[in-house]
Design a protein around this nucleic acid. Structure first.
Lengths: 251, 251
DNA sequence: CGCGAGTTTGAAATTCTTCAAGATCGGTGG
DNA sequence: CCACCGATCTTGAAGAATTTCAAACTCGCG
């Protein structure tokens, strides 16, 4: 098993972690003051590389830390006893992994790297201690967890009340948005995940995903070639997801 | 609009809130020490009654507090612009509502009482302040949020990779378990929600829910009469949800 | 150049939804 | 007390969407 190369992180590197990280406003420190960030940096003891298809953690592992993605991307999934798999999320740089473990002190899902990746390890005990002293950190941490809950509600909406084509459109729009926030093109990108993984996330079989891709292409909304996607008609894609903008239904 | 009766809560009542509440070990204070709980009690300023079918909060409302359910039950839902509804959860005594609002400072779903209910109002700013001083509170609060995330993953699993009958079985088992924790019968109970609401939660149409009920009954697993449910064969129900208990699939 | 993993596409089978008609329940008013 | 009403639930049959099964295609890589 080949290692990519020796980890080139010096102590100096680690110390100036967050303040110089270009992910600052996407990650945990967002909204914190300079001095608050400096304190957060001090508790990030280490980074960890995770090779493609290797787990950052696995379901059942004791929970000790949360992880901020520095580079690369991950999927999280839950396995049913009979082998059925549900992908619960695709995660990219700046996002926080591992929050599922706090409640039971064990991880409740698997986090697998979709490409060679690197994460900042934030030891959880220390994070709690620091959050008691640093108000901004506490607040941001709570926001991160809350947004995760809201994100999950969005996925439920998607799984519970959209049809295949709508689900895929919503998925692509979401990816596009998150990529553009990170400075990548929002109109053209490479999918890191297989049709099967997309299907698992969207509650569809891989063939259905493939057909939905084809249909969106026939309709002229996107251009697909295997894992390469180009968004041609953003407005129509969005209309697919939010069919009509009527007022909220009364009570 | 008739009020149920004047709220009979005195200041004395409020002060001895949590320590004497029979929901103690199901609610936020679980795991906190006596003294820690006393401090938590002091920040619970008020209770609030919510009549059946009335909202505790609505999507878009400014976020100011989280709520611990004292009595009754709620559903939370998200509405799509075109009127489609997704029920994101059914909540009972001891559970915490409103966590969705922290991230955006506005609520992102509706919380509607399914029966006349009462909640403890926990002002969020104050909770954060206290959590910085009281380690046990901080820790419990994080656990509550984390468990909410894990719960949501369970729902995704359900929506994404189970068939109608399995979804309903999982739903009934979950209800049964939560009722038994609260001292109610786990084998026989009354559903507070309509077929339509169950369907929205499970990603099914109400007719499909009804048929799934009938099929489970034909198979001798349950007895249904409208909203009254009796579980006859717990083991088989569980087998439906977890078809075979094999080892975790390797990597 | 061929292999394997991943993808696409077609056709049949299955599951779920839609449409439609009755049945049941709780509450209301005669 | 009972008939009736609206809301909810059940059931059937037809239709639509998704899945399953099967085969062929593409692409990167050794």
């Amino acid at each position: 098993m080949l290692r990519p190369k020796p980890v080139p992180v010096t102590v100096a590197d680690i110390r100036k972690n967050c303040s110089q990280c270009h992910l600052l406003e996407l990650c945990l420190p967002f909204g914190m003051t300079e001095t608050e960030i400096n304190r957060l940096e001090q508790l990030i003891e280490s980074r960890r590389r995770v090779l493609r298809n290797k787990p950052l953690y696995r379901c059942g592992d004791p929970f000790e830390a949360i992880y901020a993605i520095r580079t690369g991307s991950f999927k999280t999934d839950v396995l049913l006893e009979d082998g059925r798999q549900q992908v619960t999320g695709f995660h990219m740089a700046g996002e926080i992994l591992g929050l599922d473990g706090i409640g039971t002190e064990r991880h409740t899902c698997n986090a697998i790297a979709m490409e060679d990746s690197e994460v900042c390890v934030i030891e959880y005990r220390q994070l709690e201690t620091l959050a008691r002293e640093v108000e901004g950190l506490q607040h941001q941490f709570h926001k991160v967890m809350s947004r995760e809950i809201v994100r999950d509600h969005g996925v439920m909406m998607l799984l519970g009340s959209m049809r295949a084509e709508e689900r895929l459109a919503a998925f692509l729009l979401n990816l596009s948005h998150r990529l553009s926030i990170r400075g990548f093109s929002s109109a053209e990108f490479h999918l890191r995940m297989t049709r099967n993984e997309i299907g698992s996330y969207l509650g569809l079989k891989l063939e259905t995903v493939s057909r939905a891709f084809s249909r969106l292409q026939e309709e002229g909304l996107i251009l697909v070639q295997q894992k390469h996607v180009k968004i041609l008609d953003l407005a129509s894609l969005q209309k697919l997801v939010h069919p009509l903008t009527r007022h909220q239904s009364g009570e």
